[in-house]
Design a protein around this nucleic acid. Sequence first.
RNA 1: GCCGGAGUAGCUCAGUGGCAGAGCAAUCGCCUCGUAAGCGAUAGGUCGCGGGUUCAAUCCCCGCCUCCGGCUCCA
Length: 659
Amino acid sequence: MSEARSTPVIRLTIDRQPHVAAQGATARQVLAAAGVTDAVAVRANQEEGLRDLSWLPTDGDRIESIPVATEEGRAVLRHSTAHVMAQAVTDLFPGTKWAIGPPIENGFYYDFDVERPFTAEDVERIEARMRAIVASRQRFKRRVVSADEARALFADQPYKLEVIEAATAGSVDDDEAVDAGPGTEITVYDNSVNTHVAWSDLCRGPHVPDTAHIPAFRLLRTAAAYWRGSERNPQLQRIYGTAWESEEALEEHLRLLAEAERRDHRRLGTELDLFSFPSEIGGGLAVWHPKGGIVRRVMEEYSRRRHEEAGYSFVVTPHITKAALLETSGHLQWYSQGMYPPMEMEGVRYYPKPMNCPFHILIYKSRGRSYRELPLRLFEFGTVYRFEKSGVLHGLTRARGFTQDDSHIFCTPDQLEGELTTLLQFVLDLLRDFGLTEFEAELATRPDKFVGEPDDWDDATQALRAALEATGVAYVLAEGEGAFYAPKIDVHVRDAIGRRWQMSTLQVDFQFPGRFDLEYQAADGSRPRPRMIHRALFGSIERFFGILLEHYAGALPAWLSPVQVTCIPIAERHVGYLAGVADQLRAAGLRVDVDTSDERMQKKIVRAQHEKVPFMLIAGDRDVAAEAVSFRYRSGEEKRGVPVGDALAEILQVVESRA
RNA sequence: GCCGGAGUAGCUCAGUGGCAGAGCAAUCGCCUCGUAAGCGAUAGGUCGCGGGUUCAAUCCCCGCCUCCGGCUCCA
């Protein structure tokens, strides 16, 4: 730097490279001098929080630039865009009270207390106003204020006052922390053009330097949300939006949203004639049509076989039970709001079951158990009923009646760790067989409110951790997120378009063995309590099916497809030949249709393509003469003149490999 | 459950205060065809349900039901 001669200099590290800068230079200036132009914020000295580009580094600071095209950078961008949105709302709806407006995955929101909910037209006007604000190149300027100054500034903003009080008391939650840093200092960001302050918000920051750094955004939808997330609090009007580092990135995100809509399992369920939710039966209660029923049966059969190979014992239990069982288990005390109400017969109350565990425990208890029998692995496709609030139902992934692939494993304390390890490996292997390959696990530890002995918790948590380490699956610690009766591993999967779904859960239970007074006879004649592991692998068949359907966009792999092969005659005279081919394929266990409709071949191809059938076998004169068929694959590729035996072998190979 | 939105043919959706429409699907007929939609005809509706306003309501108003987007909750 040329001015270094007359100005005191400071030594900095910028993105691990040493640099010299003039004292008093902003982070933005030193980054620019170092050739870094894509940053929206910086991290200083490996601190957790980020700083504005207007921050003044001092000698010896290590600076990490945060480019906009990173998750942290986008969060800064989205947070700033949320401010612009709040400013636009304030411009258009004077008197609006602001709550909070944090960045979230893929976007941002801001909650407002307004006279009436926003309409679609309001949102258009807000977005237009935002574009004007962005075009005016407003700056985001940070200033530190005292708690009293903040109270005065936001005297007419009751939600901000609450955040200020929470911040000064040091008790903010994560979302609110975005608006005011805990305890330390209270900061305000002024949005200004030249010296004119257009709008100010209580905010921890950081923010982009000015609105020229907001290249692409879109408002997406409005919704109601409770203040501080509690249904006892007033409902606020929330606007969701998204912001990206470029128009291209925004377009790509919008394309992904459209893709997700296209893959919606509820839409595919109707289009492919798999299942439906007749309103005559009631919300959240599915009926499975023949084609959906085939897929479900194949899934269950495969799972059953794998469980048998892994040493599980199949059990069957009823759908309803007397209240007493659920009193012993504690469900009536803890879970009654999630249960269907009881029905009374001969003066006794019976409940539809919300979970299978108490029933499996009674099987364990049906006679004395020896350590020689352990681990005892009970498995059931157990159908349960839970009364979900009407607003939360969502196709097959959130239903009121569903079938869990539920198992309960009873083992000795010594067996626990080994059992968990093989169990987790089993879970991951089976998910892979269904084509899900990206896993992320969470180890959820003891919550503030818990039952049992801390030592037991530590042992069980350690066993779960050992299982995670042994299988090598990536996991994060979810401190305090365990169930009140047990630590657990939750396995999440990423689907084909990157969405995260919670799938399997493994829990080590401290409650039930004691509540039901379970025991086994040990080799030394003592009668210790067994350990108990709860495990749902798919979670529920319905939910898993829905996720698979979205993962594959309806084009299920051949082994799961309801129709694996559609035979298409080119002309009516080829029907008889293809009927013979179809018989051969069926004899080999394949699910085959022959399209005998009075349509042209092209039309039949369209239909089979819409039905997402993996293999079309087409036959005309040339194929008949050669005792061959012609393939058309789901991809649109084709292969002509394949001898029937070869075609059968090829299809069987794909089906059996579950590819 | 709460806030907002939407309900028109099996599906996707137009439409208007004055006899209810399209495409696809379905049925029937003609065509017999070599890799993404052949031609014609027919049928299909209490315009979610109930009430109100009006000479007249699918349309405007009110209530309810169902679904959708969120919130809370959750497999």
